[in-house]
Design a protein around this nucleic acid. Structure first.
Lengths: 340, 340
DNA sequence: CTGAAAGCGCTAACAA
DNA sequence: TTGTTAGCGCTTTCAG
């Protein structure tokens, strides 16, 4: 293994070149206060002239932070990689992190082997904190991270009793509002296309659907529930099944915008008019707004706020570790976009 | 900033606990040869008992590698994030890296600020090498990395005179073969939907298209070339334009499978039969195989091989730095999938 | 405001 | 086969 950048100048050399002590250079590099302006300038010139770049390993070792946080993507996320919700969240995390000077590192954990490797990486101190998104119910990684006392924040929870810090949307409420809205429109046979039911988020949206029906005094019909996995293809397939089972369907709640798009395709293929014959509401509103269904009514999650909240919680945990789990549940908003 | 894992045991403590010297523990941890089996076992027990985890910063500092490589995604990549080609490449890189014990870190570089931060991160020695994909012609980052003497490998090149190490597919040849195939079928009015023409890969595919026409003694018609950006939406739009300008079109080469899918939609919407009236060939074959167009003929890039090659080149550069740029150009394959 | 010095935890070279 | 030791480059007291 070739040594890294063999002749790279060190703090020491910069100090010598500038005719000051090591500590002073360190202060300048870290923008610490208490350095005479002229000295600072002299040091800065020396840095320029020598092309000095701080050695991050040394900095880390000397007892400070790694200045990086990892966003872990476990295997089940993989398919969602292509979902707009995913990239929007990543984008918002990047924005939220911009001020902190920390690097956002996406890491893929697909096998047990990779999980172990990542754990070593994190426990080895290469990151100051860990973010996870779309956690599946049975995922043990958050527990392992918690055990290693690593600041961790989840997007979504694994169950109602999640203890690791998380940021989540009010999925039950969002779904309930959506279905109530459909009922208010006079729809009576409302079906739902869920997400993968091993994810708590999907369970919550399903619960909201059921709650709304119950509140309206209607009885839930099991055959009006079709499991999907958030993807467009699953939406198409689920919708096709639903139409066959219940030709009288006049309303749909889909657990994602993408599966809603699939549902719309299947409905049109079956000759239904949307939204005259059948109204569709989906969760999230990224892909559709940009693509083929700009007029779909959606339950919007506050993505920017989610990213910001995750970073805020993470920073709090880094600041004052191991004192408490922190939870944030953000409100959703029904965005009505039906054309007149 | 809270100190990281304050009470974490060190090598020293493990050594004391096991009643051996520090060096011995280091050897055991690193699986080095030359340790008596009984000693090794004793050390391993001590490690278990104390829950020792090596401090990676210290390890890095002590003169070895960072055991991590970064895959940089610059702003223009961002849209491709959702493209199947992207996730397939990432997957193959992960596989290729699995043996090496290195962490793959995806980093997003969207702004000048983030570019600077990443540069510091890389020059600071947090990664042993850098991979970049879908580099745009004007991107300076590879030069900066080269200047910093950081092992770097690109997927694709910025121009015909690329010097930084890269792995690329034979895009000209692939496009030429595809168009020749269409010509052999008797198609005579062949259009192309390109990728973003500020990317060399898109230029090459366009060149291949033109070469094939020329070889057949046909004249290239500028209005048969529509610029897209690899996305489905761009394919739809470009195709719609092309049909309007040239209703007689009977063949299409699309620069990606995704834009080919968009083209197919536009063709069907215009009442054309595919492939009877119009034949379509796209580059890559991921999304379509999994989605709606399993029978599209495609120019297949050897994704697995691309990932493997990139890692191989990177390892070579790390091993023996700064001696040469290395280039690999992989053959493409025309995968005919028309139904009878 | 600045310099000197004590580590941070590990690897690797050298003795033993 | 193993123990000892000299750094790796930086941050951070503590004097001055």
């Amino acid at each position: 293994m070739g040594k890294r950048r063999p002749g790279a100048p060190t703090l020491e050399e910069v100090a010598a070149h500038a005719g000051v002590g090591r500590g002073t250079v360190s202060r300048v590099v870290n923008n610490a206060a208490g350095v005479k302006e002229s000295t600072r300038r002299a040091v800065q010139r020396a840095i320029e002239e020598l092309g000095y770049v701080p050695n991050l390993a040394a900095r880390s070792l000397a007892g400070r932070r790694a200045d990086a946080v990892a966003l872990v993507l476990t295997e089940p996320d993989w398919r969602m990689f292509a979902e707009p919700f995913f990239s929007e969240i990543v984008r918002s995390l990047g924005d939220a992190l911009a001020d902190t000077g920390m690097q956002l590192l996406l890491t893929l954990v697909r096998s047990e082997d990779e999980r172990q490797r990542f754990l070593e990486y994190a426990r080895g101190g290469r990151v100051d904190g860990i973010l996870m998104m779309s956690v599946h119910a049975g995922d043990q990684l958050p527990d392992m991270l918690a055990e290693a006392r690593l600041p961790t924040v989840l997007l979504g929870r694994r169950s109602g009793e999640e203890y690791v810090s998380y940021v989540d949307a009010d999925n039950v409420g969002g779904a309930r509002n959506a279905v109530s809205y459909l009922l208010k429109q006079g729809r009576r046979t409302i079906a739902t296309i869920t997400g993968p039911l091993d994810m708590y988020v999907a369970q919550c949206r399903l619960r909201g659907y059921r709650d709304a029906l119950e509140m309206a005094g209607l009885e839930g019909t099991p055959s009006l529930v079709a499991e999907g996995d958030f993807t467009e293809e699953s939406g198409r397939r689920a919708m096709a099944d639903l139409i066959e089972r219940h030709p009288e369907i006049d309303g749909i709640l889909a657990a994602s915008d993408t599966s809603a798009a699939g549902a719309l395709q299947a409905l049109r293929a079956a000759g239904r008019r949307v939204p005259e014959d059948v109204a569709v509401i989906g969760f999230d509103d990224f892909s559709l707004a940009q693509r083929t269904e700009p007029r779909l009514t959606t339950v919007r999650q506050p993505v920017e706020e989610m990213g910001r909240s995750m970073i805020r919680l993470l920073l709090e945990e880094m600041e004052e570790p191991f004192v408490a789990w922190r939870h944030v549940i953000l409100r959703t908003e029904l965005v009505v976009r039906e054309s007149a």
